[in-house]
Design a protein around this nucleic acid. Structure first.
Lengths: 201, 201
DNA sequence: CATGCGATGTCAGGCACTGCCATCACGTAG
DNA sequence: CTACGTGATGGCAGTGCCTGACATCGCATG
């Protein structure tokens, strides 16, 4: 047996989520997280850059899956359809993890500092997606706008999935969000009433 | 004459932008900002909640302008057109302020902590816009997605405006971004080539 | 056994931010 | 004119996040 217990990183992440849930993010000190994981504060900061990052371990893998799927979509696919392929690719990552996602989502939404970190992760995803789209030949500002749209669909869909019942699959909710988005952008009223005239900025 | 120099808040904001530009955000201490404004560190924190907030004084007014215009759009206007009215309403706020916007933009983009704050301000704007749209009768998830789209158009357009020459007006750039966005969401290739088949998530 | 290496611990310190109390000019009641 | 309340500020101590420098310890390799 080694000198140290295995998986220190994972133990820190577990301890942090548990303590943030139990007593709140601000009321939890890094020393307490480290202590619960059987480590010291200094070691916590060797594994995670700061007190927030400990909740965002999987964001790199998510971004990689999403972007690779967009890059690998058929050359004939329109930008919005390449995005759809990316959304489909990340769904397996959350299979059997809805309960974990719910707990994490509750903690993040309850703390502005954590929400800020979540948002910059999504912005990083958006920037990388825009880059992938440009390599597919999409011009600006269409590439950036498409990427932002994809992230918006993911964000809204993911939130609805965590709030939904067990019978609704993530892939299904994301597909619905994408469909609703297409309708809105096309100028639909989204409330079954007829429309009349547009306005210009 | 009063005991204190007037406009302490504004002096702090000016000093902060100047120091963040000159020597960088991380290399600037709050005590230095306060000193440059002829005040103390303690007083800085009475005017601004933290070291980042000092760069976001106008965000409340921006949000108010945007949301009020969406709320006040004709009942007959589709959601996306109400958004266009909001985008038009905020343009005067930046008249003759492009140079200030450029300096601030450069500082914010160069520092992840400041970018996080910028993103949460935009998220707050998005949430308030979604609320305004729901009050107009727009259902979910269309309301949230439309709001996210509006913020995306503003973000992308604003960045392009700060990077553009003096002859391009903000209202013009925002209108172009909105048009590009509509095209992308409709499934356009955005690169003048014909499209073939879509994909589903 | 000697040596290097990797993960951890220990310690000192800077800086962001907060709570508490003091200060001081100004306005106003008496 | 004096006394008192008020609002913006200063001073100071304290907590917690985060970092740099150095020490420790088990393991692998020679």
């Amino acid at each position: 047996m080694g000198r140290w217990q295995p998986n220190a990183r994972g133990r820190l992440a577990e301890a942090a989520l548990a303590l943030y849930s139990e007593r709140g993010y601000e009321q939890t000190t890094v020393a307490e997280i480290a202590g619960r994981a059987g480590l010291t504060e200094r070691t916590f900061f060797r594994h995670y850059a700061d007190k927030r990052e400990v909740l965002f371990d999987g964001s790199g893998a998510l971004q990689e899956l999403f972007v690779d799927a967009v890059t690998g979509a058929p050359r004939s696919a329109a930008p919005i359809d390449a995005l759809a392929a990316g959304l489909a690719a990340i769904c397996p990552m959350f299979a059997d993890r809805r309960e974990h996602a719910r707990r994490r989502q509750a903690v993040v939404m309850a703390n502005p500092e954590l929400l800020e970190r979540e948002l910059i992760k999504l912005a990083s995803l958006s920037a990388t997606l825009a880059d992938a789209l440009r390599r597919r030949g999409v011009a600006e500002p269409a590439a950036s706008l498409t990427a932002e749209a994809g992230v918006a669909v993911f964000k809204v869909g993911f939130e609805r999935w965590t709030a939904a019942g067990e019978e609704r699959e993530l892939s299904q909710v994301l597909q619905e969000s994408l469909t609703a988005f297409r309708a809105v952008a096309a100028g639909g009223r989204a409330d079954s009433a007829p429309r009349t005239g547009p306005a210009a900025p």
